[in-house]
């Protein structure tokens, strides 16, 4: 039962971000959406912890509100 990490946690954040955008290059909207869905599932499985996952869903929803 670990809390969601919401402080900087990726060494080389710019490189990760560039990798993420590069993965979507040349894809149609539908292909990009499917890639994102697969990526979310792969990352969720890696995290595993249901508490952290539930907090992540809430955090993502809340951050989208103005």
């Amino acid at each position: 039962m670990a809390d969601l990490v919401t402080t900087p946690n990726i060494a080389g954040a710019d490189d990760f971000y560039a990798d993420l955008i590069a993965a979507h290059q040349g894809l149609t909207k539908a292909e990009s959406d499917a890639l994102n869905a697969r990526l979310i599932l792969i990352l969720a499985n890696h995290v595993g912890d249901r508490t952290a996952l539930a907090q992540a869903i809430v955090a993502a929803k809340n951050a989208g509100r103005n």
């Binding site: 959406d33 499917a34 869905a37 697969r38 979310i40 599932l41």
Partner: peptide, 8 residues
């Protein structure tokens, strides 16, 4: 989208 992603 997620259903298809799970299957893939």
């Amino acid at each position: 989208l997620f259903r298809d992603a799970v299957l893939d």
